[in-house]
């Protein structure tokens, strides 16, 4: 297997960015190998040094002078899958030059970096991680099921570094397909710009909710696009093809803002309805905020603005 030097460079770059971001996320946090909260008692385990003293059963200690740790259901492994939409539309944003996306500027670069960071972060917590790439081209392994191990993580990074935005996502079909492969009670991070008719693809989230998966939808957007922050009238087109529209951004801005609000409301309510959490992610915002809101703080909803 020969590696494209650009891809190799991107792998390192991705890895580095992911680690840096993860470190910043974990700064000041007590390291734990588990994600989630204890909700249901399972059994007892003999205390081992290093175990979290919060879970020491003080009543058992008082009665029998034994040190035992309470175990909960959720403390079992949590399979995590990151689903990345890399349709051609994600090549737009502040840069839309084609080729490998600029990891700093384009929506696709932001999506890849976010995916890599999530994978790295979850791997660092000892969870098995998997990757599903929707649309895009150049990736030999677009579907990697959740596993543990550094090599698997590395494989995910290779997939992320080698993919280029292309084609249509066809979100409805893709979500049904990924959902059917998802394990029960797993964690799913869906990174997409959602630029397909919401009424068509939102119901596909039921494929996850039926498996009681914890879905976080990272709704990616470019602020300049969503505010129609252009000055001159232009012919706008989608890289995915379709109708071209000559629009004067100044005249249409007010109506566009109304449409964006209606659209966000529609997507948010759809995600919540199907049991997920909605995380708007603007490419102009720090990625840590998005991850913290989605994972650490447990905050789902929030304003895109």
């Amino acid at each position: 297997m020969s590696w494209d030097p650009a891809v190799l460079a991107r792998i390192r770059h991705l890895h580095l960015r992911a680690r840096v971001l993860t470190d910043s996320l974990l700064m000041g946090e007590h390291r734990s190998r588990r994600v989630g909260q204890a909700v249901e008692f399972a059994d007892y385990q003999e205390y081992q040094p290093g175990a979290d003293l919060r879970f020491l059963d003080w009543k058992v200690l008082a009665r029998s002078d034994r040190l035992v740790i309470k175990r909960f259901e959720t403390e079992t492994e949590l399979p995590c899958t990151v689903v990345v939409d890399l349709s051609a539309d994600l090549a737009t944003g502040q840069t839309g030059r084609g080729g490998y996306p600029d990891l700093d500027a384009s929506k696709a670069g932001y999506a890849l970096t976010l995916a890599a960071t999530l994978l790295f972060y979850l791997h660092r917590h000892g969870e098995p991680v998997g990757l599903e790439i929707v649309a895009g081209e150049g990736c030999a392994f677009p579907s990697l099921p959740p596993r543990t191990g550094k090599n698997h993580l590395q494989q995910c990074f290779v997939a992320l570094a080698s993919v280029r935005p292309a084609g249509r996502a066809d979100l409805a079909a893709a979500l049904v397909r990924v959902g059917s492969r998802t394990r029960r009670r797993s964690w799913v991070g869906l990174i997409t710009d959602g630029m397909e008719e919401p009424s068509e693809w939102l119901p596909a989230l039921s494929a996850f909710s039926r498996r009681r998966a914890d879905v976080r939808l990272f709704h990616l957007f470019d602020r300049e696009e969503w505010t129609l922050g252009f000055k001159d009238a232009s012919v706008f087109y989608s890289p995915e093809g379709g109708q071209e529209l000559a629009v004067d951004p100044v005249g249409a801005r007010e109506a566009f803002a109304e449409v964006v609000d209606e659209y966000v409301t529609e997507v948010r309510s759809g995600v919540v309805r199907w049991g997920g959490r909605y995380v708007p992610v603007g490419t102009d915002r720090a990625m840590e905020d998005a991850i913290r809101r989605a994972i650490l703080d447990g905050m789902a909803e929030g304003s895109w603005a």
Binding site: L90, F221, Y237, S238, V247, Y263
Partner: peptide, 15 residues
């Protein structure tokens, strides 16, 4: 001027 635009879905609605 031609501009690639990632939110054509929304632009179509506006138009």
């Amino acid at each position: 001027d031609r501009k690639a635009f990632g939110a054509m879905l929304l632009l179509e609605r506006v138009v």
